[in-house]
Amino acid sequence: MITLGHFLALSAVLFAIGLFGVLTRRNLIAVLMSVEILLNAAALAFAAAAAYKDPVFFAGQLFALFIIVVAAAELSIGFAILLLVSRHSGSVSTDVVEEMRG
């Protein structure tokens, strides 16, 4: 039988992989993709906890829905900023983002 612990362990490992990606990637697009993995790991943990522990309100599943919405908004703004960075300095490496002034 699959327990809540299995789902939480899977989402913890997924989160650790995403964390590794955020820390090691030097391409900003790849960093944003790793952030997406982080958010999905959190959403999976919320949804599993709701399915096992909260049979009345499913609050965790609602949280997971809002995490997906916020992730989509974050990604669209992130990509717009990234497009500006690439237009400004010709590259999307983390090395070129050193100053805030445009």
């Binding site: 327990t3 809540l4 399915a51 096992y52 522990k53």
Partner: peptide
């Protein structure tokens, strides 16, 4: 340390 959750069945949503 937090993963020792008790054994309960999940409920479909």
């Amino acid at each position: 340390g937090f993963l020792g959750a008790p054994q309960t069945a999940f409920r479909a949503v």
